[in-house]
C-alpha cells in the first residue's frame, strides 16, 4: 500500500468517522477545581452512540462534541445538576448512567438493601426455628452408617 494512500486512509478514518467534519475549536481553559468537577461528571454521562460507554471513555465524534459542550458549561460556572438537566432536556434520562432517585427508580436504589434486611431476617428466623425443632424432636443422626464410612475414608 502506498504511503499516500495510507496517509489518506488514516486521515479520513482517524480524524472522525467517515468524512465527518471536525471543526477546530478553541481550547476552553479550566481551573484545577473545574477540571476536577469535569472529571467527576463525565463518567456519569452516557455516550449515546456507543454501545455502553461513558463520555469519559468514548472517542465517538458525538461523545467528543458533548464532552466539549460539557466543558464549556463547566467553564461558564454551571453546577453538576444543572449540566445534567441540560443534557436530559435534550436526550432524556438515558444520558444519565446514575439514574435519578424518583418514583420509577426507588426499587432500583433501595431494593438491594431491603433484600439484605429481608434475607438476614429469614436467616435469623431459620436459626431460631432450627433450635426449636431440635428441642422438640431430638434428631436422628444425620449420617447413616454407609455415609459415615464414605466420609471417614
Amino acid at each position: 500500500m502506498s504511503r499516500l494512500l495510507l496517509a489518506a486512509l488514516l486521515a479520513g478514518v482517524l480524524l472522525g468517522a467517515q468524512a465527518q467534519v471536525t471543526v477546530a475549536r478553541p481550547d476552553i481553559p479550566l481551573s484545577t477545581e473545574q477540571e476536577a468537577r469535569l472529571a467527576e461528571l463525565l463518567p456519569d454521562l452516557r455516550c449515546l452512540v456507543c454501545q455502553n460507554e461513558s463520555l469519559a471513555e468514548s472517542r465517538a465524534p458525538l461523545a467528543l462534541d458533548l464532552k466539549y459542550e460539557v466543558r464549556g458549561l463547566v467553564a461558564s460556572g454551571r453546577s453538576a445538576p444543572e449540566i445534567k438537566q441540560y443534557l436530559v432536556d435534550r436526550y432524556g434520562d438515558f444520558v444519565l448512567f446514575r439514574p435519578p432517585f424518583d418514583a420509577r427508580t426507588w426499587l432500583l436504589w433501595l431494593g438491594p438493601f431491603a433484600l439484605v434486611l429481608l434475607a438476614l431476617g429469614v436467616l435469623l428466623r431459620q436459626i431460631r426455628g432450627s433450635r426449636r425443632a431440635v428441642a422438640a424432636a431430638p434428631p436422628k443422626p444425620v449420617d447413616d452408617a454407609a455415609l459415615k464410612k464414605l466420609l471417614d475414608e
Binding site: L48, V49, L62, D65, L66
Partner: peptide, 14 residues
C-alpha cells in the same frame, strides 16, 4: 450546522 451545536440542541444522536 458545521460544529453540531444545533444537533445537540435537538438531541440528535445519529
Amino acid at each position: 450546522d458545521l460544529d453540531g451545536r444545533a444537533g445537540i440542541d435537538f438531541g440528535v444522536y445519529g
